[in-house]
Amino acid sequence: DAPDEFRDPLMDTLMTDPVRLPSGTIMDRSIILRHLLNSPTDPFNRQTLTESMLEPVPELKEQIQAWMR
């Protein structure tokens, strides 16, 4: 099983494109984008959230890719 820090906190699946929300939570980009289609909010604190506020986490993405090899 993947380490917890590699798993999306909402869907508990392996992240492939991790992004940091303004709240500091790291999620998979595809999952948070799907959530934003229904509700333009951070799913953990209900603060306003837009796609432009998502910050890529390239170092975590590299760690996940290395773990998958």
Rank of each mutant, 00 (worst) to 15 (best):
P58M: 08
L10H: 05
R34I: 10
H35Q: 06
L49K: 00
L14N: 02
V19A: 01
M15V: 02
N38M: 14
T48K: 13
P40A: 13
P40D: 10
L60M: 08
D8I: 03
L36H: 01
T41Q: 08
W67V: 02
T50Y: 13
E59P: 05
P18R: 02
T48R: 14
T13R: 07
S23W: 06
A2Q: 06
T25P: 07
T13N: 07
V19R: 02
N38W: 12
M27P: 00
L49I: 08
S52A: 14
P3A: 05
E55C: 09
M68G: 06
D8M: 03
F44T: 05
L60S: 01
E55G: 05
T25Y: 15
M11R: 08
M11S: 14
I64Q: 01
M15T: 01
P43C: 05
T41A: 07
T50N: 12
P58F: 09
R7A: 03
P18D: 02
T25Q: 12
L10P: 03
P18V: 03
R20G: 01
T48W: 15
L36I: 09
M53N: 07
I64H: 00
A2C: 15
I31R: 02
V57D: 07
L33R: 08
N38S: 14
L49E: 00
S23T: 07
M11P: 01
P58G: 08
A2P: 15
L36T: 01
S39D: 13
I26H: 03
R29A: 05
T41K: 08
Q65C: 13
W67G: 02
P56H: 07
P18N: 01
I32N: 00
E5Y: 14
L60Y: 02
M11Y: 11
K61I: 07
I32Y: 02
E51L: 12
P9F: 06
E55M: 12
G24F: 04
E59G: 11
I31S: 12
I32D: 00
P9I: 07
D1I: 14
M68I: 14
R29V: 06
H35W: 15
R7G: 02
Q65N: 11
T25D: 05
D42R: 06
F44D: 02
A2N: 05
P43R: 02
P40I: 07
N38P: 00
L54G: 00
P58V: 09
G24K: 05
D17K: 00
Q47M: 13
L54D: 01
L21M: 06
S30T: 12
T16S: 11
D1S: 14
D42Q: 01
T50G: 06
I31Q: 06
E62V: 11
W67I: 04
M53R: 05
K61L: 13
L33H: 06
Q47P: 02
R20F: 04
R7N: 05
E62A: 15
F6G: 02
L21A: 00
M53S: 06
I26W: 04
P58E: 09
V57R: 04
R20L: 08
E55F: 08
F6M: 07
L21N: 02
P9G: 07
T16N: 10
R7W: 09
L14I: 14
R69E: 14
E55W: 08
N38Y: 14
I32F: 03
S30Y: 12
E51R: 09
D8G: 03
R20T: 03
M53P: 02
L33K: 08
M53C: 06
P3G: 04
S52H: 12
T41L: 09
R29F: 08
I31T: 12
D28W: 06
S23V: 01
T48D: 12
Q63D: 07
D17R: 04
D17I: 05
P18Y: 03
N38Q: 13
V57W: 07
D8Y: 03
Q65I: 14
M27A: 05
F44G: 02
Q47C: 11
D42L: 03
L36S: 00
D1E: 14
V57H: 07
T50V: 10
E55L: 11
S39A: 08
Q65P: 04
V57Q: 09
K61W: 10
S30G: 10
L60G: 01
Q65E: 15
F6K: 02
I26M: 03
M11G: 09
D4H: 15
M68R: 08
L37A: 14
P3K: 06
R29P: 01
S30Q: 13
L36C: 05
S23N: 07
N45A: 06
S30W: 13
T50F: 12
A2F: 15
S23E: 01
Q63V: 10
L21T: 04
L10I: 11
D8C: 10
L14D: 02
P9R: 07
P18K: 02
E5C: 15
A2L: 13
F6V: 02
A66P: 01
H35D: 00
M15P: 01
L10D: 02
M27Q: 00
L37M: 14
F44M: 05
A2D: 05
N45P: 01
E55T: 13
M27Y: 05
T13M: 08
M68V: 12
I64L: 06
N45Y: 06
P9A: 12
S23G: 09
G24L: 04
H35T: 03
M15K: 02
L37P: 00
V19I: 06
M11W: 10
M27C: 08
T25S: 09
G24N: 05
K61T: 07
I64T: 01
V57Y: 08
L37W: 10
R34P: 00
W67E: 02
N38G: 11
L21Y: 00
M53H: 06
D8F: 04
L37V: 11
H35S: 06
D1V: 14
I32E: 00
G24Q: 04
R69W: 11
M68L: 15
P40E: 11
M11E: 13
P18G: 02
T50R: 09
P9Y: 06
T48M: 14
Q47S: 15
E51A: 14
S52T: 11
